[in-house]
């Protein structure tokens, strides 16, 4: 294992992390406001699908990402209607939406896109930043990626700023913690939650779009393969904070990148253990540091005036 090997590992990890990061940041925003999205996986899957569909229809990468975003928002909107208007249990609605998303995208892949025409017209190009991308070892990993990857990392401080430095962010924290008290301070609980949920849908949709448009430009059934659940785990492991979620995503992605290479190296670690690691460490962290792993108090509880 040479330094070059590590450099390549880093390149892979950072590219793997970007879609996860979008989804995890979206979920941080949403859970801060007290809305849990078990259907994060479904948002990503639909985003991945509509992204490809948009690319095929328009041949324009910006339109493709816009339709990926719209796909995520669509799933979020259905969740919002079920939970905020009809008072459905957030977790149950999320599970149902996952089933629906998987069924609908698989079905439409064959029936609407045509199973053989899955190769997208456009994919995301790499956009190396001059000079910086030539830095030895880390240059390629950090500065020779696509624009969406750069945006994913810029989104970390952006979400941090949104949640801690803006009145909107304070309102989200308030409605996720004590909705009744927030209401008594004049915060509109329902509006705030809708905003957080739709924002989460948009980010998760982009993350899903990045999975397909940033890679081979191919949509296959269940292309997300549980990435949305890893993003959920990252939010918990990152203790519901943007920077924490970023750390968790990076850790999980490094392990994932390592796992792919470890098989090639023939290391005596079962790769399946590494694949299961994000879930295992999240459970262990929850069990061991339960007092410090405090979710927003009103998480997954619908608010009724």
């Amino acid at each position: 294992m040479t330094l070059d090997w590590f450099s390549l590992l880093l390149v892979a990890a950072i590219a793997l992390a970007a879609p996860l990061l979008f989804a995890a940041l979206g979920e941080v925003i949403s859970e801060t406001a007290g809305v849990i999205n078990i259907e994060l996986e479904g948002m990503m899957l639909v985003g991945a699908f509509t992204g490809i569909a948009g690319a095929l229809a328009s041949g324009n990468i910006a339109v493709a990402f816009a339709s990926a975003l719209a796909g995520g928002v669509l799933v979020a909107a259905v969740q919002g209607i079920a939970c905020f208007i009809f008072g459905a249990n957030q977790v149950v609605a999320g599970i149902v939406l996952n089933i629906l998303a998987l069924g609908a995208t698989t079905f439409l892949l064959v029936s609407a896109l045509g199973a053989d025409v899955t190769k997208s017209a456009v994919t995301l190009e790499r956009l190396p930043i001059p000079i910086l991308s030539d830095i030895p070892y880390i240059g390629r990993a950090l500065f020779d990626q696509s624009i969406a990857v750069y945006l994913a990392y810029l989104a970390v401080p952006a979400v941090w700023w949104l949640l801690t430095r803006t009145r909107f962010g304070l309102a989200l924290k308030a409605v996720g913690e004590r909705p009744a008290a927030a209401e008594s301070m004049g915060v509109n609980v329902l509006k705030s939650r809708w905003a957080a949920l739709l924002l989460c849908g948009a980010l998760a949709g982009i993350g899903g779009g990045l999975l397909t448009l940033g890679g081979l430009g191919v949509f296959t059934p269940n292309v997300t393969k549980g990435i949305g659940f890893i993003a959920l785990a990252a939010v918990i492991f990152g203790r519901w904070k943007p920077v924490g979620a970023f750390g968790a995503v990076m850790l999980f992605s490094l392990v994932d990148a390592f796992q792919i290479r470890a098989q090639a190296l023939g290391l005596p670690i079962p790769y399946q253990l590494l694949v299961a690691l994000p879930y295992l460490v999240t459970i262990i962290a929850l069990a061991a540091f339960v007092s410090r792993m405090r979710p927003p108090a009103a998480l997954a509880i619908n608010y009724e005036r």
Partner: peptide, 13 residues
């Protein structure tokens, strides 16, 4: 809101 600072509560209010 217990998870916000005093100043942040003030801002919201």
């Amino acid at each position: 809101i217990p998870t916000l600072t005093v100043a942040q509560n003030m801002v919201l209010s």
